[in-house]
Design a protein around this nucleic acid. Structure first.
Lengths: 269, 269
DNA sequence: CTCAATTTGTTCGTATGTATG
DNA sequence: ACATACATACGAACAAATTGA
């Protein structure tokens, strides 16, 4: 058994999907350039060590995604304008976290069974006396890219209730007077979509996601903002400045600077 | 067709794998506690809307992973000590980036076709006159968790060649005298393992990975350190301090504070 | 101890999907 | 396009272990 075959074997995902994901990656990484003719079926069979039909299944999948087109007698070509990844740049500092989302309009969702209070881990402060729970889906060009589950301290929400329903909470929070923020942090892990997240984000169950937890703590050590955010993995990019002045900053073309208008449906807190 | 069935359908991954990934997530998120009896097969069939055999296939998979054990007549139980994720905390600032890796011993790999120079994007500085290329795999308790592809400016490498072979490059770089670092940054995106990465990290082809690019730029605007690092997605956690003093820091139990000793094999630069 | 209820384990037949040559 | 083999998924029935009445 070849080494490649053993590597295929480590995943129980169908072979043609594995081949497709390698090819998809090559296109997205730019190893295969737009308009370029890719290897012939025969070369691909040899490279991936699979049957011709299996390569064709993979190609068919990518063709449906608009990444390839085939022409009998000529070959298989990368699309001239393969659908681009819209990288949503996640920030690692307070200022650049607020900037790209401040004009965004979340679509609030009805919540049937709102959890009464957030579960706070060590370093996440003390619980506030009362929270309201907001759930929203973030859209960019009618494509969902994140689900936000937010516990917001009631006393904070009451300062500007309508603003918190119409705008992303973090910029509203930052603009509130008479509120001292002592600390804010965010953690990120890579997870997989559960059925509900998969449904809302229009991805497959188990498809990779970026799971963020963002906590804001006030001067009294109370967690006033506790958000669990699930992003589609294919539209997030994280930029960290490690040392020195900010440069190599995210390009202005990416990130949802202008948000699509969203419908606001019923809300229960 | 039910909503759930449509969500299943969005992924062409076998159904039992999708069910398994949802169950695995519940265990890892703590929704199902160690030792606890989970729902009966019949309840699971109804919940996931799949046949009994399909639930059993998913359960069998998780049993092999050591997350579950079953007992005829009694039920199915979460393992008392389910294998834990060892979160490797990635840093978002210079100091905490160096701390956890400084004692690590990378296993250097032979490189057959070293790329002559890194491809530098905008904001990544000017290329150095010459680079050496190092590839290594990082291990923790004999489990690989990352692949490092590093372009290091030759003039920097020459200051302490042996140190760069025996230790992670970044701490060595930081300890060098007569070198002024002007800027350093890192970006992270979520990707999928190509066959080579899958082989080295012992994961499936297409399995999610964290792809980091770390660039260090000196006082002359020259990129002296350009690393592409691929982490297994299941062992990284990112902690970002957004505002205020550092707190809620990663627990000391996680992260590879003490590195496993690694063999150093042949190296070609 | 036996009985019944519960729950996992096994097997059949059938249909469809995946993969090869 | 065809023949072949194996994996996936379904529903249903039956077997075997455990529990408590």
């Amino acid at each position: 058994m070849s080494k490649l075959a053993r590597t295929y074997d480590r995943s129980r995902v169908p072979l043609y999907l594995q081949v497709a994901s390698v090819m998809r990656r090559r296109i997205e990484a730019g190893h295969w350039q737009p308009g370029q003719k890719i290897s012939t079926l025969e070369e691909l069979e040899r490279e991936f060590e699979v049957a011709r039909v299996t390569v064709r299944q993979a190609i068919e999948l990518l063709r449906e995604e608009g990444l390839l087109h085939c022409q009998q007698g000529r070959g298989t070509f990368i699309a001239d304008d393969p659908p681009r990844r819209r990288w949503l740049t996640l920030a690692t500092d307070w200022a650049s976290l607020l900037e790209p989302i401040k004009d965004n309009v979340p679509r609030l969702m009805k919540v049937d069974d709102p959890p009464p209070a957030p579960e706070l881990g060590p370093g996440e402060g003390r619980p506030a006396p009362d929270y309201i729970f907001l759930r929203s889906v973030q859209f960019k060009e009618d494509e969902p890219y994140a689900i936000v589950n937010l516990h917001l301290a009631r006393e904070v929400y009451d300062k500007a209730p309508q603003d918190f329903l119409d705008h992303p909470a973090l910029p509203v929070l930052a603009s509130l007077g008479g509120l001292r923020i002592k600390h804010a942090h965010q953690t990120l892990v890579i997870g997989g979509a559960d059925p509900e997240a998969a449904d809302l984000l229009r991805i497959g169950i188990g498809a990779p996601t970026a799971e963020c937890r963002c906590v804001v703590i006030d001067e009294h050590d109370v967690a006033i903002y506790v958000a669990d955010i699930t992003y589609r993995s294919d539209c997030v990019k994280l930029h960290m400045n490690l040392f020195g002045s900010a440069r190599g900053k995210p390009r202005t073309s990416s990130g949802p600077r202008k948000a699509a208008a969203g419908e606001v449906s019923t809300l229960r807190a």
